[in-house]
Amino acid sequence: MDWIHSLGLFVGSLIANTLASLSGGGAGLLQFPLLIFLGLPFSTALATHKVASVALGLGAAFTHIKQKSIPPTIALYLILVGSLGVIIGANLVLMIPENIAEKALGGMILAIGIYSRVKKQLGQEEIQANRTVTGWTIGGIIFVLIGIINGSLTAGSGLLVTLFLVRWFGFSYKQAVALTMICVGLFWNGIGGIAMIQAGAPIHWPWLGTLLLASLLGGALGAFLTTRLSNQFIKLCFELLTAAVGIKLLV
């Protein structure tokens, strides 16, 4: 690429990852289509995006850990149960009818955005719920399923995790976004990227440095804003991004 395309790739990726870090997911809304627009085949763009997204989680994790906004035991729980689904999803990616899967995911994401908009007080304060053996077990099954989505599709799984943490376990949006960024952004995407490489998906290495830098900076910037903005504003960002991701996947 010439410097103009490289700058466009950096700026587009920076915006995508800042929004994702602020809202709890959705980096693939801009970054993945951008890679295809610049000429990468679908499988190469997906694998390259997955690997680059690890830096998003790393940048966000640094800020959230510094602020002590991530409960270690819950983070470990999310990493373990979700990683199982990610590995399954990464190996299923070539077997799933892409068009049908993306439209189904788009409809679901659009629906959760509307649900969050209707529930005005959702995620404004922490209200402990379903934090029993049964609750954690059911939650674990759901996270495995979301992990499969994460491993096999381009965008949206982080948004599903964020809302499920808010709705099922009663976390505030700030807490849910912080957990999503370190668990999904760093570990799920990292494991998914490795699994995809082992499954034979190619990485476009010449662009990876630019993507990693933009993802790292975007993750840190979004996490910084999360610690300083209200739950109401973060909720609004989440709802706008879910609408955009849902419509993009459907259309």
Rank of each mutant, 00 (worst) to 15 (best):
K50Y: 02
M196C: 02
T242N: 06
S21P: 08
Q175M: 09
N130E: 12
F37M: 15
T48K: 00
A176N: 04
T242P: 01
L7Y: 06
T154Y: 01
L58F: 12
V118C: 07
L38Y: 10
A176L: 07
A243P: 01
S83T: 14
S83N: 02
L110F: 14
V11F: 14
L58G: 05
A201N: 06
N231H: 04
L46K: 06
L221I: 15
G12N: 11
I100V: 15
I191A: 04
A223F: 02
G8D: 04
I146N: 01
L30R: 08
N189H: 06
L92A: 08
A201W: 06
T180H: 07
W3G: 01
D2F: 00
G219Y: 09
L160T: 02
G12V: 12
A243L: 14
S157I: 07
A201K: 04
R167C: 03
I88V: 15
P97N: 10
V245D: 10
I114L: 13
L213G: 06
A61M: 13
T226P: 01
I149M: 08
K235A: 13
N99A: 12
F42E: 13
L221H: 12
W168C: 08
N99V: 11
E102L: 14
A155W: 00
S83G: 10
I148Y: 01
G113W: 11
R167G: 03
L153V: 03
R167W: 14
M181G: 11
T154F: 00
N130H: 12
A201Y: 08
N17L: 07
I127Q: 10
S6N: 12
F32C: 01
N150E: 05
S152Q: 03
F171C: 01
S83P: 00
Y115G: 04
E102S: 07
I191P: 00
N99K: 12
P41E: 13
T137G: 13
A195T: 14
P72C: 15
T48V: 02
R117S: 11
E126H: 07
P33H: 05
L7N: 04
L153D: 00
A129V: 03
Q128D: 02
T134K: 15
A75D: 01
I182M: 13
I79P: 01
R117D: 05
P206T: 02
F169P: 00
T132W: 15
A75T: 00
L250D: 02
G140M: 05
A60G: 15
N17C: 07
G106M: 08
F224S: 14
G151I: 09
V93F: 07
P41G: 09
K174D: 04
L38V: 10
A176E: 09
A75N: 00
I4D: 07
E102C: 00
F32H: 02
L250A: 11
L19E: 04
L35E: 05
K248S: 12
P71G: 10
W3M: 09
V11A: 13
L159H: 06
L76I: 15
N17S: 05
V93H: 09
T73D: 06
Q128L: 09
L94V: 11
L208P: 14
L9V: 09
L221W: 12
I4R: 10
F171M: 08
I96L: 12
F169Q: 01
G151M: 10
